[in-house]
């Protein structure tokens, strides 16, 4: 499995097994996240604490997820590593989905 998914306090947490999310893994990432929304996950968190690199293709998957979620629920990411944080800052992704320092913080904010 490329992605591990679990539900905690009503939040579906998806954790990628890979340390790189790029053009090769972006379609699977997109399918996994959109699939969760289709299955009714309205609180969705992507744990990026193990991801060192994320390229524009993977970013496209996150943007698509945020667009699909829209007013249905909330989508956020947590555990963002420096290189990924730079990309998010450059592209102002904090306006597209919520970015949390840790999974615990994300859980409390998403379920609030």
């Amino acid at each position: 499995m490329l992605f591990d998914a679990r539900t905690q306090s009503g939040v579906t947490i998806v954790t990628p097994a890979a340390t790189r999310l790029d053009a090769a893994t972006a379609p699977a990432l997109r399918d996994t996240l959109l699939g969760r929304i289709e299955q009714g996950a309205h609180l969705l968190l992507l744990d990026l604490s193990g991801v060192a690199f994320l390229d524009s293709s993977a970013l496209g998957a996150l943007i698509a997820t945020a667009k699909r979620m829209g007013p249905l629920g909330r989508f956020g990411v947590s555990g963002v590593q420096p290189a990924v944080a730079r990309l998010f800052a450059l592209t102002h992704m904090d306006r597209v989905f919520s970015i949390h320092p840790s999974t615990e913080a994300a859980l409390s904010r998403l379920t609030a």
Partner: peptide, 12 residues
């Protein structure tokens, strides 16, 4: 300082 890409938020 960066900025939103085109095609992410329509009313940006």
């Amino acid at each position: 300082q960066g900025g939103l890409p085109i095609g992410v938020l329509p009313d940006a």
